[in-house]
Design a protein around this nucleic acid. Sequence first.
DNA 1: CCATATTACGGTTTGCGTAAGAATC
DNA 2: GATTCTTACGCAAACCGTAATATGG
Lengths: 313, 313
Amino acid sequence: MNLQQLRYINEVVRQGLNVSAAAEALFTSQPGVSKQIRQLEDELGVEIFARQGKRLVEVTEPGREVLAIAARMLGDLDNLRQVGAEFSNESVGKLSIATTHTQACYVLPKVVHAFIERYPQVGLSLQQGNPPQVCELVRSGRADLVIATESVADYPELLSLPCYEWNHCIIAPLGHPVLDTAPLSLNEIARWPIVTYDSAFTGRNQINRAFQSHGLEARVVLTALDADVIKTYVRMELGIGIVARMAYDPTLDIGLGMLDAGHLFDSSVTHLGLRRNAWLRSYTYDFIELFAPHLTRRVIDRALKADGSEYAI
Amino acid sequence: MNLQQLRYINEVVRQGLNVSAAAEALFTSQPGVSKQIRQLEDELGVEIFARQGKRLVEVTEPGREVLAIAARMLGDLDNLRQVGAEFSNESVGKLSIATTHTQACYVLPKVVHAFIERYPQVGLSLQQGNPPQVCELVRSGRADLVIATESVADYPELLSLPCYEWNHCIIAPLGHPVLDTAPLSLNEIARWPIVTYDSAFTGRNQINRAFQSHGLEARVVLTALDADVIKTYVRMELGIGIVARMAYDPTLDIGLGMLDAGHLFDSSVTHLGLRRNAWLRSYTYDFIELFAPHLTRRVIDRALKADGSEYAI
DNA sequence: CCATATTACGGTTTGCGTAAGAATC
DNA sequence: GATTCTTACGCAAACCGTAATATGG
């Protein structure tokens, strides 16, 4: 048994049980992959893949177990490389962050700025997507950490750490009557057409719940994936916007007024997700602490290692 | 990088940084081991071992990280083989249990009997030792599970599951006046010379604490590692014995009388220890359930997977 | 001087790629 | 017939063991 075989079966699954595609993705020959997989199956004494004639059609039950263990081993292989890189030079490396638009645009800029100043030799990359997508990037090892408000806690493979709590606000073109309301109420908001986030995004659940629990129906005339688009349509006077509070900047968002709506909706919590049993570079700890000061190295390590060691009778 | 290199560094540490000994233990040549270790260090870009001239003198800091990850990977390698064995034939295999004398003699016999009847093709082996020793056997992969009253929870690498609660009793030669006391009190016990367990064994702590908290001094004239030895000396009228309740059997222990002392001492809890992220054979689950019926497969899996995924802000 | 680790070298094994063959859609 | 996996075969690299060399107690 060797690690190459584990890489092969892992990639074959990733490619939807297509050995040829896996071989190509791993820059090797297809017969080589095929043969190594057979060898692994022979050695373990179980079929990992069920075949129909000459085609792989599904992962067997033992295969699922094997693949789960193999994935962890490959993750550990990555970890070994991380350790090597860390101790070779602790301020050179890469850091790949998977996140959503809201975080990338309104929260991360100042964190990223501080980080690249501190670690000029770390290649930082932001990968954007919707919550399930960015979680998947981390799960599969293509990103080091995910920052998102939704989904993170739904991935059992990820350790989910709450970072900060936030709420929504109302935006409207300057001069819009809603901006003069004080105090702002759900009834008042419900009088106007609304532009807000797409479902399953950036706390949209909290918005729906608030209206429902007050027996109100919000007239959502348009939903969008991010606050920039929402602002655009609010400027066009299509309606008033409900966006994350941090997405409004009085100096940049000229022509728009804002009213805090924190008292009207349940707050949302932005989470940070890490692969469990990932080994983190020191600059990764620092990045996280820049982002969420309460998440010190100590706290993160404790969370990664915590394992529920003692169970009641 | 390959798994062999990980085996090598792991064994070198186990052999006290002696490459020759490691080579011998792994049935290979010493230069081969030496070279592979160098290759691994080159590939990772860090020294795993610090050398003085031609001798390995200590594990470096990156080395410690590397070794920890390597150990997990080797554990997973074992797990892969377990999966293979399980699905090849789920009632053939081996099960190695590390435990203390008390468990092996007085608790396990009926469990073992039921197990070998159910799984005649599983080679069962009991390894005996003191609590730290048996924990270490499991930690290093030389045993599958540990059953002991002490130490298990002290090993962070082990998942510790409480199994059952028990207490002590007093034994004395038939006709000894202490046997007529009712109710039995600590004061009464303290009047006599005592034979009991060695420290760090089988609930000895609970015994000490009870006397201390009552301002009494127990006259312990002899300590022993196991109940059989204690009984022998009690028969010799060296004193009265304090042993685990389950160590007394009225039909076997002729010439000895027993008084329950459950109301005098804090109870002890016997624990079962498993390597975290071990993959268990189905018969291992069954063995555990035979031993502690509340530890069903479901419960064990939940405990193994529990990881403290959600942390408060 | 003995024990121990590294370097050097040759043989075997293993893994990989090309080419051909078989099976399924 | 096109795609996809398996088998066959030859080459190259990696691994391992023996022998020789260097280093420290």
